[in-house]
Design a binder for these strands. Structure first.
Lengths: 98, 98
DNA sequence: GCTTTATATACGCCAATGCGCATATGCGGG
DNA sequence: CCCGCATATGCGCATTGGCGTATATAAAGC
């Protein structure tokens, strides 16, 4: 479901945006990896991934005990552009120097 | 202040996104005009504009009894792209037909 | 000065969101 | 089977966000 407000809401949270940044390498990542790398608790990360999934930004796949998340392939062009742009906005630390 | 999460949060609300859409014609619009065109109450519209302003997306200017809002000129490229993309995502009605 | 028009803001309310904790569920291996 | 790892989810709580109502502020015209 790609309504713009849903999309923007899904991205408007630091942990979720960070997760998208990781997932945007095109590879699969399990929840446990994301937890570690983002310093989030298990339930927290799981729920954030559920949010991203229901916004249509990521898909998941069961692989044995793990659930592998990856970015949804073939996102509509405006959606892909939106995310690309969101990831390109410097996260403030950089702006302080300016 | 252009931190990505702030930016995305500011856009992740229907009335605010609609206001941005109107303001993105590059012209000035007073609150009363936005109220009418978006069917929002006075305080509601005023507050939403304050949010957009503090996110750095719009600027305001006092003109007699009115306050004229317009899009912030010379937004950083990723921010401009982000908004352009957000405005390009079809607002669901169109996706139902597909 | 007073009134009208335009906008902002304080206050209180309700709904939504994010979180931790505990528990359920799925799966593989002894 | 039972256990351990990985993930999801129910529950209660604290915080945040959007809203209406009422009030403050600002400017214009008489």
């Amino acid at each position: 479901m790609h309504d713009p407000v849903t999309l923007l809401s899904a991205l408007a949270e630091p942990t979720r945006l960070a997760a998208i940044r990781l997932l945007w390498d095109g590879h699969e990542h399990c929840v446990c990896e994301l937890m570690e790398r983002l310093g989030a608790s298990q339930s927290r990360m799981s729920r954030h991934m559920a949010t991203l999934k229901s916004a249509g930004l990521v898909t998941d796949r069961r692989d044995a005990q793990w659930v592998r998340y990856r970015r949804t392939p073939n996102l509509p062009e405006p959606v892909a552009t939106l995310i690309q742009a969101a990831l390109s906005v410097p996260p403030l630390p950089e702006r302080i120097a300016a």
